[in-house]
């Protein structure tokens, strides 16, 4: 239990710095903007209390917001993702017993995990880009940005998952 909290804390800090100091400076064709810090919310153990999921996601969002000159947008998207996460986990994980395990490809099965990641990240990115632009006449451009950033984020998360959680069968 304590160990899980510590691991989550370390993930929080590492993903936050990775996002702010590395990923936010990536500008492939000025369009791709991967937001891998969402992986923190994806990775929280199965039976994390709901209030903890919500507040920690909100905090992470606010921390990233502080560094992106537009307050509140990441926080909004993260809280939304944290709220929807338990529903998705129920749908995709089936009969996993009450444990402090973390969702990963080796536990959920690759296809299940992929859909779980894609749906959560898509909700986050769509909310983020819609709120960040806030103009209906640019909806096509918003959707395009969402799609390519979604692809980049999902690929990075799946790769990281394969590297870090491969051998925990």
């Amino acid at each position: 239990m304590l160990k899980d909290i510590l691991i989550s804390l370390v993930q929080f800090i590492l993903l936050f710095f990775f996002q702010v100091l590395v990923l936010d400076n990536i500008s492939l064709w000025g369009m791709v903007n991967p937001m891998v810090y969402v992986w923190f919310i994806i990775l929280l153990p199965y039976n994390t209390p709901r209030w903890l999921t919500l507040t920690s996601s909100f905090l992470l969002g606010i921390c990233v917001d502080i560094f992106s000159s537009q307050m509140g947008i990441n926080a909004f998207a993260c809280t939304l993702v944290a709220f929807i996460r338990p529903l998705l986990l129920n749908a995709f994980s089936g009969n996993i017993e009450n444990t402090f395990q973390r969702p990963s490809a080796s536990r959920l099965g690759f296809v299940n995990f992929l859909f779980y990641v894609i749906i959560l990240v898509a909700i986050h990115h769509l909310t983020y880009f819609l709120l960040g632009t806030f103009a209906l006449n640019e909806i096509i451009s918003v959707l395009f940005r969402t799609l390519i950033s979604l692809a980049a984020t999902v690929i990075i998360i799946i790769l990281c998952d394969a590297v870090f959680f491969h051998k925990q069968e």
């Binding site: 509140g72 926080a75 809280t79």
Partner: peptide
């Protein structure tokens, strides 16, 4: 349903922050 209220509260806080932009 406490988590729903918490969710709404946090989203409200976010919207407040967005309005400060």
């Amino acid at each position: 349903y406490y988590h729903v209220f918490l969710f709404l509260f946090l989203e409200g806080l976010s919207v407040y922050f967005i309005s400060l932009n």
